[in-house]
C-alpha cells in the first residue's frame, strides 16, 4: 500500500520480471525470480481480440505444452471461468464485458497460469464500489480455497485491511521506500459490516492513513521548501 508514485507498481513489475532492477536481485523461494508469473493488471489483462476462453487457453497452452488436446484446454478454461462466476460468458470478448466481468476473467486467466504467487496491480481501481466489494470477496475466497500467496497493490486503506494479512506501506517517492510492515489484527473470514463499525477497525484504518499521509505531507513540505528557495 502507498500513495501514487511510491513505487508499488514498479515493485510488482520487478517481481513479475517485466522490468529489471538497476541493482540487486529478486529472490523468491531461494531462486532468482519466478518462472510462472500470474498477474492481474488494472485493465488490459486480456487481449481484446480473443474471447474470454481463448485468452485463458492461450495461457494454458504454454503451461500444459502439448499435454492436452484443444478440446480439453477449452474445457479447462471453462472451469476457470466458472470458478470466477463467468461460466456463462466464455465466448464473450473483453469489449462486450463490463469492467467487473473483465477483471473476473483476468483473475481466471491469472489462476490458469498455475503459479503459487498471484500479483495484482490495483486490479479493482477502476470499478464501481459494489463490483469492487464483490471482487474483493472473490479474491478472499480464492486465497482461502487455493492457498495462494497474493501480492495486492492498492492505495485504498479499507481494501488493504479487508484483504491483507500484512500490509507493506510504501513512502511517496521518488525514490519510494518501504516505511513499515504492519500485520492486520483481524481474523479472517471477516464480516465486513461488523468490522467497519468496530472501533478497532476505525482506529487501525486511521493509523494506516496517518502513516501514509505523514509521508505525503513530509514530501509536500520538502517541495515547498525547495520552491521557496528557488523563488528568492
Amino acid at each position: 500500500m502507498g500513495p501514487s508514485g511510491s513505487g508499488k507498481s514498479t515493485f510488482l513489475r520487478l517481481l513479475a520480471d517485466l522490468e529489471k532492477p538497476n541493482s540487486g536481485e529478486i529472490i523468491i523461494n531461494n531462486k532468482n525470480g519466478i518462472s510462472d508469473i500470474a498477474v492481474v493488471f488494472q485493465d488490459y489483462s486480456l487481449f481484446p481480440w480473443l474471447t474470454a476462453e481463448e485468452n485463458i487457453v492461450l495461457a494454458l497452452k504454454k503451461r500444459l505444452k502439448g499435454k492436452k488436446s484443444k478440446k480439453e484446454l477449452f474445457q479447462l478454461a471453462e472451469q476457470y471461468l466458472t470458478m470466477v462466476q463467468l461460466g456463462h460468458a466464455t465466448k464473450k470478448y473483453p469489449g462486450e464485458m463490463s469492467g467487473g466481468m473483465r477483471q473476473r476473467a483476468a483473475i481466471a486467466r491469472a489462476l490458469s497460469v498455475g503459479s503459487d504467487l498471484l500479483l495484482m496491480d490495483e486490479p479493482f481501481g477502476a470499478l464501481d464500489p459494489i463490483t469492487r466489494i464483490q471482487l474483493q470477496e472473490l479474491v478472499l475466497q480464492i486465497n482461502q480455497d487455493q492457498k495462494k500467496t497474493i501480492i495486492f497493490v492498492t492505495h485504498d486503506a479499507e481494501e488493504a485491511i479487508m484483504l491483507a494479512d500484512s500490509i507493506v506501506m510504501f513512502s511517496p517517492g521518488p525514490p519510494g521506500k518501504i516505511l513499515e510492515c504492519i500485520d492486520v489484527p483481524f481474523e479472517k473470514p471477516i464480516n465486513r459490516n461488523e468490522l467497519f463499525e468496530s472501533r478497532e477497525f476505525i482506529e487501525f484504518r486511521d493509523d494506516l492513513l496517518q502513516l501514509m499521509n505523514k509521508g505525503i505531507f513530509e514530501k509536500l513540505n520538502q517541495k515547498e521548501a525547495v520552491e521557496d528557495g528557488g523563488g528568492i
Binding site: D43, F47, L58, K62, R109
Partner: peptide, 25 residues
C-alpha cells in the same frame, strides 16, 4: 506496452506469439 506485458506474462512464443498477439495487435 500493456499488451506486451500481457504477452510476456503468459509466455507467448512462436506461432501463437505472431498469430494471436503481434498480428492482431
Amino acid at each position: 506496452k500493456r499488451y506486451w506485458d500481457n504477452a510476456k506474462i503468459i509466455g507467448l512464443k512462436g506461432i501463437d506469439f505472431i498469430w494471436k498477439f503481434v498480428l492482431p495487435a
